[in-house]
């Protein structure tokens, strides 16, 4: 019985998460046979996925399953040892992290990585970097173009911070923000780069239920306003089941199930993977 259900859910090597829905949506991201080995350890193996242009996708799995590693592969923090990544149909082989961002993937980090000594506003302006149009001579000579572009960047930064009601914290050093606000600032900074696909690595970590609820609404709002695809890693099942349209479950570097939230919730393999890992934790 288990076998039967598996073949229905995981249609490898098809890359689409939910074939019925994705057929009509152009794919912004496609990963095919993606994998990486760390000195013999296969951290991620045969990862196939397709994400629609305005889809909210979830990536779940027990600790150490390889979720963050997949984000690191997609953003080229690690170079994949197998497979390929197509971004808007374009092969990202040979690109580095910077180029991948310019092509349209932005991300946040599980272990928050802000520019600590810069202010909140400056952090967002770094995100706007490739959309500010002046060069070194203009900044040294403070030409009208410099002032115009800086003013534009300032307004845009405040606008983006407003998504999370953070505009009033603009002048505060990023490091002095409370934990939840730091996570939100990472999202704003990533959005500032104008991505097609936003990767969120445990965005609700360390947040209380009220904050998580608000975050859920904001993630939906971001998708609707910016018309971008979002892929998120999260351990908070309420959040994942609440906003993800498609979910992939990872265990020991391999996808064990893909489908809609209800399909995933009822998948015995998924339940086993989670219960199994819980047993291990206890032991």
């Amino acid at each position: 019985m288990t076998e039967k259900k598996e073949t229905k859910l995981v249609s490898v090597p098809s890359t689409t998460m939910i074939p019925e829905r994705d057929i009509n949506k152009p794919l912004v991201l496609e990963a095919i046979h993606l994998g990486i080995e760390f000195g013999g350890l296969k951290a991620v193996e045969e990862f196939n996925i397709g994400i629609g242009a305005t889809e909210i996708a979830g990536l779940i799995g027990p600790n150490g399953a390889g979720k963050t590693t997949i984000f690191n592969l997609l953003t080229k923090v690690y170079q994949p040892t197998h497979g390929m990544i197509l971004l808007d149909g374009k092969d990202t082989a040979g690109m580095n992290t910077t180029q991948v961002n310019k092509e349209g993937i932005a991300r946040t980090f599980q272990n928050i990585r802000l520019f600590d000594k810069l202010t909140v506003e400056e952090n967002v302006k770094v995100g706007l970097h490739n959309h500010i149009n002046y060069h070194v001579p203009a900044s040294i000579l403070r030409t009208p173009k410099y002032w115009k572009e800086e003013k534009k960047a300032h307004m845009r930064a405040l606008e983006l911070l407003d998504i999370f009601d953070m505009a009033d914290m603009a002048d505060v050093p990023a490091a002095s923000l409370p934990y939840g606000a730091q996570r939100r600032l990472e999202i704003v900074r990533a959005l500032a780069t104008e991505p097609k696909l936003l990767l969120l690595d445990e965005p609700a970590a360390g947040m209380n239920p009220a904050e998580t609820e608000e975050l859920m609404n904001n993630i939906k709002k971001i998708r609707d306003e910016f018309q971008i695809a979002i892929m998120l890693i999260e351990h908070d099942m309420n959040l994942v089941m609440g906003i993800c349209e498609s979910i992939a479950v990872l265990n020991f570097g391999k996808v064990i199930a893909k489908g809609t939230p209800s399909e995933i919730q009822n998948n015995p393999q998924v339940i086993e993977a989670y219960l199994g890992s819980r047993k291990e934790e206890k032991a």
Partner: peptide, 16 residues
């Protein structure tokens, strides 16, 4: 300064 504060985040933000 972004590179100074966090190189990986700077790269992921599109900084060369």
């Amino acid at each position: 300064m972004a590179i100074r504060d966090n190189r990986i985040a700077a790269e992921a933000t599109g900084i060369n």
